[in-house]
Design a protein around this nucleic acid. Structure first.
Lengths: 399, 399
DNA sequence: CGGAGTTTGTTAGCACCCTGTACTAACCGG
DNA sequence: CCGGTTAGTACAGGGTGCTAACAAACTCCG
């Protein structure tokens, strides 16, 4: 296996079954305010612009790309020749149909030429992992039972899972992406993940050292939001709410994940909905959102309900709690789309309806425009696909 | 008077008392995702980077700038010579103190060489305007009574106010900035401003046509947030709440204003705090935040209170309402700083304390870190200074 | 007092990137 | 077969920042 590093910092190791490497003189940085910008980075930007266009909008010819971007055909040809050399793009034959002029050679994003290793650490009983191609299709799966392990044991299982997946990789590896519960900073340090028993663990550094690959670590809700954006139908301004062991949100504004000043953005599980509700929370407060909306509490509440009407009421109350927390957020950010991710059987129907209705009653005015609240359609692999999108975003500037 | 346009689109008119113009071959665009990036724009980026450093952090030598930015001294010298030619930067003598080596020539952002015209349309009885230099100091003031005018009349008064201020300009004019209540899109179109009787009014275009100057229009709360960032002590992630006729918020994430999918971000005045409170709102709902927190309602409530304890209670209840709305927002965005802008006598003390305490109880967890809630110290000119900051941000890439 | 060391800022030459112009290639239609 | 059209490719040129080298001006120390 050969690790691909577009940053040029990690020389690829020889001996893999797929020895193609990206050109090593790649500049890593996205354009960041507060840093100098060299013409060199303009090249990277334009390269990513073309690649993104091909990835998002399907095949284009060089001339199409030139027209869409405003770059000249000369420049586009030059950049495309790089992309072809890196095998990120392939020529897929002449444009169909008949027109005057020389027929155009169509270019397509090459989903299959590179792969990622993706991990989902957000489940309560097992760590899931997979090898995916750049189209988000799963090539191979592995998983490992958690069995109550935490801290160093949990880390060892994660490393083992990656090691097992590495043997399944059949194309140049673009990188390793991990979606984990907890607070993760920009450098891939897990500042706090109680479930896993991690605190200030530099997961990025550990795995990058172990596997000599680009590694991207992010919160599972943020990964999920990115997956919805890349593989779902999400708008650029989207709030994704993930219901599982706890409740977390991933926020995309203008297509960019919002992390917050202490990387704790989206941690809405312990926002108090009703302090007088008499619903104690593990955090010590009472009436937190999670006391209505974690899957465990919902199951408990449902098991105590005996009629359909009671069960519907349980779900509606949970939806109202969610809506009460989301309403101010939706108004403040003028969000246009909310996506719920979690067990469909619980979320769909009364819960989603009550949440939407509560938001409508408490937040919406004509100036905010319409809002869509829907359930994610991406299924169980959503975090894995989000982790792939994270790697693609960092390494290729797309997704 | 000569209008300065760094975009090069508006040729400066001759005959003013200050004929200095910026070089006309300036490229306007900030680096935008989705658009091509030319080396030319890299130059603009680096130019803005240096200017921002001088503006924000005071005098530096060319060598200082080179060290801080990572650019070479050669490149810095080249860019600085442009800035000197544009009179945006001045040499202010050798560095004080004695060190080995050739003494450094210190460079300073030239606050006085350009001016802006700023308007504040957020008051209920008059439109305020001023000429400010780039340091945010007021050079001249004008104001005009609204006298119930709306729609075209209001627009005529605004135009007249700018015209009067134009005669007070004593340095090259960088642009016109306007902070207005209502919903304003990125192109300076006032989509909706009920107080002013405006709907889909392209204020930017009207004024740009009338005065042949760069014009920037924004919501008053956003302008206020930008003023706090530029002239106050705000962190990069700040939520500013403006209490006046209504309640609005301006949100800065990473120093960038957040506008929302329909440009209605920050419109939190009509978020329902308690639908069962029996406090009807002009919007038709009941229990909106504004029913506790607009200055008029607070004054009414205070006038009905007869003891100090009752008055304190009125303010505390208003603060609790604000805290209840802000808590989910603070948690979701992991905001580190909240600034209140409005009448100090009302906001300080019990109201601010109750708001902070409510946020603490309802939202804060250890992962969110500390939060600061404070009152703005910028006084009545805050919107005017924010409008100046808007112009500087658009024209010079700073603030 | 003078030379070594240090820091600043500039000049000269070079590599990179995009552009404009001009060219070839390949198709359509009459 | 020839004009018109579109796609893609050379080639020179201007803008940008870099490296290397240098001049200027200061401190320190023998």
């Amino acid at each position: 296996m050969t690790c691909i590093d577009t940053t040029g910092s990690t020389p690829p190791e020889p001996g893999g079954q797929a020895a193609v490497t990206l050109r090593p003189d790649r500049v890593p940085a996205r354009v960041r305010s507060g840093e100098k910008l060299l013409p060199e980075q303009a090249r990277v930007h334009n390269r990513e612009l073309l690649l993104r266009m091909l990835y998002r909008e399907g095949p284009h010819s060089r001339a199409d790309l030139a027209r869409r971007t405003g770059l000249t055909r000369v420049s586009v040809s030059d950049v495309v020749s790089d992309l072809l050399a890196d095998n990120l793009v392939i020529e897929v034959g002449m444009r169909a149909g008949t027109r005057p002029g020389k027929p155009a050679m169509m270019l397509e994003f090459n989903e299959h030429a590179h792969q990622t290793i993706a991990l989902d650490l957000s489940h309560s009983t097992l760590y899931r992992g997979a090898v995916l191609d750049l189209g988000g299709s799963v090539v191979a799966r592995r998983q490992v039972a958690i069995d109550g392990s935490t801290g160093a044991d949990a880390l060892a299982k994660v490393v083992g899972l990656v090691r097992a997946l590495r043997d399944e990789v059949t194309a140049p590896l673009l990188g390793i992406g991990i979606g984990t519960p907890g607070i993760v900073d920009l450098g891939g340090v897990v500042l706090s993940a109680p479930n896993l028993g991690w605190k200030d663990l530099n997961l990025q550094s550990v795995l990058a050292g172990e596997f000599a690959c680009p590694v991207v670590v992010s919160n599972d809700a943020n990964a999920t939001a990115l997956a919805e954006r890349s593989y779902g139908e999400s708008a650029a301004d989207t709030l994704l709410v993930r219901v599982g062991v706890g409740v977390g949100a991933g926020l995309l504004l203008g297509g960019t994940p919002i992390l917050g000043s202490r990387f704790a953005a989206g941690e809405i599980g312990h926002v108090v909905v009703d302090a007088d509700s008499g619903r104690p929370c593990v955090c010590g407060k009472a009436g937190c959102l999670e006391t209505w909306l974690s899957t465990r509490r919902i199951q408990e509440d449902l098991s105590e309900a005996h009629t359909d009407a009671e069960r519907t009421r349980v779900l509606a109350v949970a939806g109202e709690a969610l809506g009460a927390v989301l309403a101010p957020i939706v108004a403040a950010l003028n969000i246009s789309e909310i996506v719920l991710s979690g067990p469909h059987r619980v979320l769909e129907g009364p819960l989603a309806a009550a949440a939407m209705e509560t938001i409508r009653q408490r937040a919406l005015t004509e100036v905010h425009g319409d809002i869509v609240l829907r359930l994610s359609e991406l299924g169980d692999d959503i975090v894995l696909r989000g982790a792939t999108a994270m790697v693609m975003s960092q390494q290729l500037g797309i997704a």
